[in-house]
Design a protein around this nucleic acid. Structure first.
Lengths: 118, 118
DNA sequence: GTGTTATATTGATGTCTGTCGATGCGTGAC
DNA sequence: GTCACGCATCGACAGACATCAATATAACAC
């Protein structure tokens, strides 16, 4: 018996996929919900492209108020897709490795091998 | 000059990705929004696993009212992720080939080659 | 024709979400 | 200490969303 009650996210939506556990469906839906906003997609795009970005740069890059950007960053943080680190007055965000690949792998047949608990 | 004003969806969220066009970000966000619900994830999972499914079977499989299932199917249809075909009294749904892979490819470095307009 | 069955659509309702202004909190400069 | 700056949080509000009951539509059986 492993201590993983839920298989992380097997390829859910490819031919021959097994019927999904409810918890897995909810986990995937939560991840996609975090990406279901153009501003958040653009933020993730910048983080992925540049590696590490200061919040001030993100705020400058969008035509939105600072609280709104902060809100979007919190959504991405709560979804586990990005992480923050404070250095001095500034906060730097970066992509959490593996999480985006996990979501993407659920939609593609050529997914990474996924550890499944038994 | 090609007649594709917007590159479909290059790998937006992988290291070294280019800054995303606004229209591409909106297109990706719309796709992920369609998947941002556990019921719709489960529906897509069933369609992907079984190939073609009658609405009646989907309705039976979930603890939700028939209008609610019909609503979710419309969301997936409007997002271009599934297609419907009526045969007699029944409607059969199936996955639209390539669309899920397009979304998944935006999140993974090992994506399919994507045609980019220039 | 009538009646039944399978989906879609409409309308209502409660909940969630994106945005903003105002405020709080921690850091560095002075 | 005070002040400015970067960011998070709070409160409010308009719009979107998930769900349901009721109704409409379309096809088959009779």
């Amino acid at each position: 018996m492993r201590d993983l009650p839920v298989s992380p996210s097997p390829a859910c939506c490819v031919p021959g996929a097994p019927v999904l556990d409810v918890a897995v469906a909810e986990s995937l839906a939560a991840g996609f919900k975090a990406l279901a906003d153009p501003t958040r997609i653009a933020i993730v795009n910048r983080l992925a492209a540049l590696g590490e970005v200061c919040v001030c740069d993100i705020t400058d890059a969008f035509n939105l108020g600072q609280p709104t950007i902060s809100h979007h960053l919190k959504v991405l943080r709560d979804a586990g897709l990005v992480s923050a680190e404070k250095r001095g007055k500034w906060a730097y965000y970066r992509i959490v490795p593996g999480e985006l690949e996990r979501l993407g792998g659920a939609l593609r047949p050529d997914g990474l091998p996924v550890a499944v608990a038994v």
